[in-house]
Design a protein around this nucleic acid. Sequence first.
DNA 1: AGATTGATAAGG
DNA 2: CTTATCAATCTT
Length: 169
Amino acid sequence: MRKLSRNFFNRNTVLVAKELLGKYLCRQADDKVIRAKITETEAYCGQEDLACHASKGLTERTKVMFGPPGRAYIYLIYGMYHCLNVVTREEGCPEAVLIRGCDLADGPGKLCRELKIDKKLNGIDLCGSKELWFEDRGERPAKINKGKRIGVDYAGKWKDKLWRFWVDS
DNA sequence: AGATTGATAAGG
DNA sequence: CTTATCAATCTT
């Protein structure tokens, strides 16, 4: 069992998205620790990627993505669901991996509800927090599937990028 | 297929 | 200030 450190996230975003599969997302809340195995991720790569929120530039909402790697980018979507992302690459390079699903819940909204994740955790350091972190428990997925990202039809030529990854359940 | 829901970014 | 849009989900 090994906690994922900052240098794990300070790398190519698509690579990090793939390697996060099979890792565990750990959440401490209400004196209990929840461990969820990650089964689905998506990569969002910088200002050029029109599907990435950071394509609009540095704003109040996206500034976490411009910060150092290993931090949590959490936001509210459709007024009711939270989505959890991990910032990758060095400071100033706005890229992130969306955690889309785990063994306890499928879908980013349900995942955050299950793990009690909301905007209060936006921007926290996942490498130094006792509330939310990642663990490598030595498990490696046998097979990684890849496909187009979901819900990004507005993103022009970027919508067909094969930047969604998942493992069979 | 339709309803839900509120933060966010952009425009006046 | 107003308005359109949205990395989703549940119900029909």
